[in-house]
Nucleic acid binder design. Structure first.
Length: 903
RNA sequence: GCGGGUGUGGCGGAAUUGGUAGACGCAGCGGACUCAAAAUCCGCCUCUGGCAACAGAUUGUCGGUUCGAGUCCGACCACCCGUACCA
């Protein structure tokens, strides 16, 4: 009996598939089309286990669908622009392009060794002009359609290196190279009007049936539609004048500023708490704050202080709440005598609503912290109906029916937020004015929060002091990056004509090759000639845009280019529409929001301008879990601290006590958190040595085994041996197959059943991408076949197993297919048919419970009448013993499943 | 901070969606084969008590609904992902 030589077989069949172009997708095929796509990789150097997991899953589905008779498009390409290439250029003095192309070559060779059924003829890399030039054409389409505009927006600014930093380059508030405290700085940048599509992106995502609920939820929350009230507070100018110092009085344009300072417009999603407001807060870059700063050095200093730190939401939200009392007083719309202090606060965002809010400390955690810090009143507004509030003692309580005693809650002023209103529960509003609004609006005395919100909006509109408004959390998409290794934005800035699109005939705008990375900052901006061009409109000397596009822009349409890649335009509408939408898109959960939302927007924007008649790019989505690994680092001892030095798992020895040391130096190493494999933390594992040792099929089988695909997988090599053993077991089975079934004769009904149940189960598992279950099913089937005596059934089962496992372990399947003398490639063979009659059993095992506890089981014919089953159950020895002579009070019979006797 | 998710033996996990918890695999232990080893095959393998039959406990923690809860509800804990310039 021969042994399966994986390495020889792998390269043989990979070569055959290549030569025969087995996996090239034909646009003109009469078969039903299926587009299977995994998120394309960033060419970071070498592939890691996360890639192997992702592409193996897609590959099994693609191969399975081919066997089911579909024309499958399963392409691969490279998300090739991005920061790591520039970092490599700085560290290793290599050109980003050379570094990237070298990585692509390496990773392509590595992917090929895993035998993926990919159509390499459609390979693309976003860093090549034939891709990004077409992307520039799309940018111009958007520009000409008014979907692109320019506005000021904050970036992380490193004041020492004088350069813009990505969020990832800010570590504990400091620049990663200089160690300087980062500031927020405003730059004029390009934006895409994604908010124009907010409503359809929201309703569209809700209609995607084959997307995971969690991703839909995350996108809905991200888009964040909220209804609320927009209204103005009048500002008191008298106190304002006292606040002004000399500089303010000498301001050259006091009228304009006074106009700004007359009133402040706020937005709130909780107008029902308007009587609980105790302050008004405006953003540091709010026009009022800016106007005040122009005349007051204290205000100026405070605003400067608010600029400290980076731009991430997590950082902004967790910052200490800071406020500056402007001295301005806002007049409450319901009571001219009620004056609220106006603060400039660092937690108010200019980008959301109107950049101004009123604070209700009793019903908002942030407002509560702020009020506590600045000694502002906390005024509870409502309680869940049934809970009472003793205003004098400031205590909330509830009457407990059973004991007829009061159950007290915490001191309301201390922890007003603790009594959380539950969804839809009616509230008792405590302020008599609110009570009146509710009664006047026709609502009950008790109202749910949304009902009360509606009542206040209706009142504000009828009295013309406010308007109901929809506000979105979603912000427009800033696409400008002050970096070299990206798609040049095809715009020319002219002093008299403004921003002008590069004429289409001059596309692509190609990145210059002669750049240096010796100094921080954008080499395009420093390049001696590249940016100096003449205005296409008036021919006057002008300046080329030196910002490049966000790499999310590159990945927002690559799936369209895969479907159709003509040389003269981004894609052919008719051809692309034959393949789109992508039937099954597979990638990491980490892309659940940004990439998927941008791609959805892009498709809709293309539809909006008439270039493509597809609304949603991805009909089916599967978010796989990440492959994770512990991180290893040697911490920096410098002050200020530099980022730690990361070590890869193969540079580290784990000692028996669980501690870690560097292999080469023996230095103690910190074992960090378990997190997703990433180049930057170096916690990646290279699959190549494992492929060398065990072959592609064992690696593929191993990646599909055990762990449910949507769950994170902590990498460990335990188990790869088992996968390899299974591949060898398969080979022994295939190699030792008896003669053709007809020649043997003899039927094994149990084995037939098992086989057909497995074919059926595995097919379902593959479509659901629950490969771990199909692996378990196949183990069971193989175990059964090995134990079975020779028969026609057994011979048939072995021949069928070759086809069932073919999508998962294609090399050994081809080898066995050929050895069994079958025609053609198994890659083109049909999936085995299922006989539905063999899917049902004629006997069932019934569980016998007494008081919900299992006491015995019973084998009965399927579909036995309840009375028969009940009688048999009551007669069972162990049941009789468990009953101890007590009469059954109740017997519950679940047909074909269980009997529960309650005694 | 906010949004989303996950939690079951020594380990990865399964459980027909409210009905026998621990399928299948990994590791381990015992045995067969072998001069020996590898490979392979057979058996055991949640925990506690018991020679055993068997009994009790057990799905992150606490509480609830139900004849019956890993699954439903409430509160909490831990970890992971995202948080708009990592890709």
């Amino acid at each position: 009996m021969s042994r399966f030589n994986a390495l020889k077989s792998d390269s043989h069949w990979q070569k055959v598939w290549d030569e025969r172009r087995t996996f090239a997708a034909r646009d003109d095929s009469p078969k039903p089309k299926s587009y299977v796509l995994e998120m394309f990789p960033y060419p970071s150097g070498r592939i890691h286990m996360g890639h192997v997991r992702n592409y193996t899953m897609g590959d099994v589905l693609a191969r399975f669908r081919r066997m089911k008779g579909m024309e499958v498009l399963h392409p691969m390409g490279w998300d090739a622009f991005g920061m790591p290439a520039e970092n490599a250029a700085m560290e290793k003095k290599v050109h980003p392009g050379n570094w990237t192309r070298q990585n692509i070559a390496t990773m392509k060779a590595q992917l090929k060794r895993l035998g993926f059924a990919l159509d390499w003829s459609r390979e693309l890399a976003t860093c090549e002009p034939d891709y990004y030039g077409q992307e520039q054409a799309i940018f111009l389409d958007f520009f000409e359609s008014g979907l692109v505009y320019r506005k000021e927006s904050a970036v992380n600014w490193d004041p020492v290196d004088m350069t813009v930093l990505a969020n990832e380059q800010v570590i504990d508030g400091r620049g990663w190279r200089s160690g300087a405290l980062v500031e927020r700085k405003k730059l004029s940048q390009w934006f895409l009007k994604i908010t124009q599509f907010a409503e359809e992106l929201l309703t569209g995502v809700q209609r995607l049936e084959h997307w995971p609920d969690k991703v839909k939820l995350m996108q809905e929350n991200w888009i964040g539609k909220s209804e609320g009230l927009r209204f103005r507070f009048a500002l008191d100018g008298l106190q304002l004048s006292q606040q002004l110092d000399v500089a303010w009085a000498s301001n050259p344009n006091p009228d304009a500023i006074t106009a700004v300072l007359n009133q402040v417009e706020v937005f709130t999603t909780r107008p029902d708490t308007i009587f609980g407001s105790s302050f008004v807060a405006i953003a540091a870059d709010h026009p009022i704050a800016q106007a005040l700063a122009a005349g007051n050095s204290e205000v100026q200093a405070f605003i400067e202080r608010c600029k400290q730190g980076g731009t991430t939401a997590a950082e902004l939200e967790t910052q200490e709440k800071l406020g500056f009392d402007t001295g301005l007083r806002a007049t409450h719309p319901f009571d001219p005598a009620w004056q609220l202090p106006v603060y400039i606060a660092n937690f108010v965002l200019m980008d959301y609503g109107t950049g101004a809010v009123f604070g209700v400390p009793a019903h908002d955690q942030r407002d509560f912290e702020f009020a506590t810090k600045y000694g502002l009143p906390i005024l509870p507004q409502h309680l869940p109906a049934g809970i009472r509030y003793d205003a004098e003692r400031k205590v909330a309580f509830e009457r407990d029916e059973e004991s007829d005693e009061n159950v007290f809650y915490h001191d309301f002023n201390e922890a007003a937020l603790e009594i959380k209103p539950s969804e839809g529960r009616e509230q008792e509003y405590l302020d008599p004015r609110m009570e009146k609004i509710l009664v006047d609006s026709g609502a009950n005395f008790f109202a749910s929060i949304p009902a009360a919100v509606r009542a206040v909006i209706a009142l504000a509109e009828s009295q013309a002091w406010g308007t109901g408004t929809t506000v979105w959390r979603l912000r427009d998409w800033g696409v400008s990056r002050q970096r070299y290794w990206g798609t040049p934005i095809p715009i020319i800035h002219c002093e008299s004509c403004g921003p002008v699109g590069v004429p289409r005939g001059q596309l692509p705008v190609v990145l210059p090759e002669d750049v240096s990375f010796d100094v921080p900052g954008n080499p395009l901006d420093r390049h001696p000639t590249w940016k100096h061009v003449n205005c296409p409109k008036c021919d006057a000397p002008a300046r080329r845009e030196t910002d490049t596009l966000d790499t999310f822009f590159d990945s927002s349409w690559y799936f369209i280019r895969f479907a159709s890649q003509p040389a003269d335009k981004p894609f052919d509408k008719a051809v692309a529409e034959q393949w789109l939408p992508v039937g099954q898109y597979i990638g990491g959960v980490e892309h659940a929001i940004l990439h998927l939302l941008y791609a959805r927007f892009f498709t809709r924007a293309l539809q909006h301008i008439g270039k493509l008649d597809v609304a949603e790019p991805f009909a089916g989505l599967f978010t796989q879990g990440m492959v994770t690994h512990a991180t290893y680092s040697i911490p920096s001892l410098l002050d200020p601290p530099q980022p730690p030095m990361w070590l890869s798992p193969d540079e580290v020895d784990i000692r028996p006590d669980g501690s870690a040391v560097a292999k080469d130096t023996g230095t103690a190493v910190d074992i960090g958190r378990i997190e997703k494999m990433s180049k930057s933390k170096k916690n990646t594992v290279d699959p190549e040595p494992i492929v060398d040792q065990y072959g592609a099929d064992a690696v593929r089988w191993f990646m599909l085994s055990d762990s449910p695909p949507e769950r994170d997988l902590e990498w460990s090599e335990n188990g790869i041996e088992g996968a390899w053993r299974f591949v060898q077991r398969l080979w022994r089975l295939f190699d030792g197959v008896e003669d053709a079934p007809e020649a043997i004769g003899g039927q094994d009904k149990d084995l037939d059943r098992k086989l057909h149940r497995t074919i059926h189960g595995v097919a379902g598992d593959i479509e659901a991408l629950t490969f771990n279950k199909s692996v378990a099913r196949l183990y069971e089937l193989v175990n059964a076949v090995e134990k079975a005596a020779p028969s026609a059934s057994r011979s048939n089962a072995i021949r069928t197993i070759v086809r069932i496992v073919a999508p998962m372990v294609p090399h050994i399947a081809e080898e066995a297919w050929a050895a069994m003398g079958e025609d053609g490639l198994i890659a083109d063979a049909p999936w085995p048919e299922v006989d539905p009659a063999l899917l049902v059993d004629d006997e069932v095992t019934i569980a016998l419970q007494v008081n919900g506890k299992l006491r015995d089981t019973l084998v009965m014919p399927k579909g036995a009448p309840n009375e028969t089953v009940e009688a048999a159950a009551l007669a069972a020895d162990k049941v009789v013993r468990a009953l101890e002579g007590k009469p059954p009070r109740k017997v519950i019979v679940v047909p074909d499943r269980l009997v529960n006797i309650v005694a």
